[in-house]
Computed example of a mutant assay.
Amino acid sequence: MVSHTEFDRHTTATTVAQAFDDNIRDKTVVIVGVSPKSLGESMTTALAAHSPSLLILASRTRAKIEKVVSEVKSKHADLRIENVELDLSSLDSIRKGAEQINSLAKQIDILINNAAVVTSSHEFTQDGLELQFGTNHIGPFLLTNLLIPKLLASAQKSSPGSTRVVNVTSLGHVISPIRFSDHKFQKRPEDIPSDERPMSRPGVSFDPPPGETYVPFVAYGQSKTANILLSLYLNQHLSDAGVQSIATHPGSIWTDLSRNLDEKHLAMIENTSTFWKDIDQGSATTLVAALDPKLNDPKVIFLNDCQVAEPAEWASNANAAERLWKLSEEIVGQKFELSPSNRL
């Protein structure tokens, strides 16, 4: 199913980019979520060494993107690289950022939705959404849809399935399905349908304390399930037009993502893995998803450690993907028809 069965958790993004050099050259790549010492920077660095025609880097803080741009340009002076200020927790910012990206690119060959947030407290976006669901799913959902015409422009000129949308997810998706009846976490678990409740195992509880409704890692798990369901839906509706979407688990990595966690939740993360990747290793699986020509199969929706993997059942459910799409349209106040007659 993949070109390199020898790739594993030790493989680096640098190695992956070298292996797929021909699939990077002259391509336009958009990477969302780029800052110093991040997975976004690692992906940018790996791709920049292989002559893409244009790299568009988007992130919430322009000054952080500019530091990455400066570092990349010091090694690849002739590379065209643009930066876009874009806050995934703001629908208005996403629309403005998408407009700028569309003005910069004639087509988009690869879109990498890498930005995310994780937090210990029950917070909300300025649009009133639970922060992790709003930033990690609704943001990429809206941005991807606003960029679809440029993705389709690439697909018309490229081999089937080589135009890619990569959604960075997490194994944390196994914690929770989508809480369609309570995505803002305003209800107790016993007050929502049983098929929306979080994972339950002997000795492991993801229920909130008495009198509370919010569990940070359940909210994170919901948002990461949504990332996979988005790839599933896109494949169902755009694969025949040449666009392929894959969600990827980067592995256990210490990045700035955990900056908003308290000591209790940081300690919980420390106990989730016995193997911690560096940033170059953590970017590898996402670049495999973006570049490997053998992954042009719409049934492939999830990669882990550079190989095809199976997500949790609730993250591979077509009915859930359709329900999530409709819910997301309602939230952003805009319908996105992906039928053949409405694609371009």
Rank of each mutant, 00 (worst) to 15 (best):
I108Y: 03
D92E: 14
V69G: 00
S170L: 05
L55V: 05
H183W: 12
L146T: 07
G161R: 00
H183K: 11
D87P: 01
V118W: 01
A115Y: 04
K73T: 10
L55F: 11
I108N: 03
V166W: 03
L152A: 09
S70G: 13
V165A: 07
H76E: 04
I81M: 02
V117M: 12
A115R: 00
L57V: 07
A49F: 05
D127H: 08
S103A: 12
L131S: 11
T163W: 03
L147W: 01
I178S: 02
V72Q: 02
L131M: 15
A77I: 12
H76V: 00
I148T: 14
R164N: 00
N145L: 03
A116E: 06
P149G: 06
D109P: 01
L111W: 09
V174P: 07
I138C: 07
I94V: 14
T125V: 09
N114Y: 06
Q107Y: 07
V174N: 13
S154G: 09
L146R: 06
S51R: 11
H122R: 15
Q132F: 01
H137A: 10
L57G: 01
F141E: 01
D182I: 06
Q126D: 11
A48G: 09
A105K: 00
P149M: 13
K150H: 14
V84W: 02
F124G: 08
Q186Y: 10
N167W: 08
A48H: 04
L88N: 07
N113F: 08
T125Q: 04
H173Q: 07
S120V: 09
Q126Y: 09
A98V: 03
L147I: 02
L146Y: 02
G134Q: 02
L151A: 06
K73L: 08
P189E: 05
F185C: 09
V72W: 01
N83H: 15
V69R: 00
S170N: 09
N167L: 14
L131H: 06
